[in-house]
């Protein structure tokens, strides 16, 4: 009876991690992407590069630095430990922080290109009709960026679900706390429990495939923009 429980736990942690990360990234990524699409500032290139960095860095590099920063003596982990008594490294919260950074480009980039393709006109039009910038953003820009949001959510979710290196380094491999599906699969293969590894791998494969099918078919149905 222990084995099915052991199997369900990593799935639940993975889904929770991916869900929380995507919500945080939408809140965080929207203003970053909007700023990138609007600004003529020289810093734009710097911010754009920083956002894209997780795409090119080996996960272990990111994981290593995060481990140091989030650890009990790190810039972030230290004060947190002093305040709450617990460290960020090897905790679920630490995993969320790490995943947020790691999956940032997968949310920001689709939003950025969506905002860029919408252009300035809808915002100007809404403003000329009396809408404040914030009002216009939610009543016009967000609905027009639906495809971008859908892509951002799916990519952010799927990428967080599939991460391995960063999670291993920052979260360790603590059952029931930081052990996610990808690590569980690795563990099962290590001890030659191929049946368990099969079930989890096939589940992840089918789940990812289905999500992509749904996204692409919704994307086809969304109306194109007209001027």
């Amino acid at each position: 009876m222990d084995i099915p429980l052991m199997d369900a736990e990593p799935i639940w942690i993975s889904l929770k991690l991916a869900g929380v990360t995507v919500v945080i990234l939408l809140v965080l990524g929207t203003p970053i992407a909007w700023w990138l699409a609007q600004t003529r500032s020289h810093y734009r290139v710097v911010i754009e590069s920083l956002v894209a960095l997780p795409l090119v860095l080996p996960p272990t590099v990111l994981g290593f630095y995060l481990l140091i920063i989030l650890g009990p003596h790190g810039w972030v982990g230290g004060p947190v430990k002093a305040l709450t008594g617990s460290t960020l490294s090897f905790s679920f919260l630490g995993l969320v922080l790490a995943s947020t950074l790691y999956s940032l480009p997968f949310v920001v980039q689709p939003l950025h290109s969506a905002f860029e393709s919408i252009g300035k006109v809808p915002m100007e039009t809404a403003q000329s009709l009396g809408a404040s910038r914030l009002d216009a953003f939610f009543s016009v820009i967000t609905p027009l960026a639906r495809r971008g949001y859908l892509t951002a959510i799916v990519l952010g979710f799927a990428h967080t679900l599939g991460e391995f290196g960063v999670v291993l380094m920052v979260g360790g491999n603590i059952p029931g706390k930081t052990k996610v599906i990808s690590i569980e699969i690795y563990d099962r293969v290590e001890v030659l429990e191929y049946t368990q590894a099969h079930i989890l791998s096939a589940g992840l494969l089918i789940f990812s495939f289905l999500i992509l099918v749904i996204v692409y078919s919704i994307n086809r149905k969304l109306p194109m923009q007209v001027t």
Partner: peptide, 20 residues
Amino acid sequence: IPVQDRKIGLVFQESRLFPH
């Protein structure tokens, strides 16, 4: 006075209707 508080109507060459 910013554009949204000016009480102006704007019409361009393209209709610029909101497609959604």
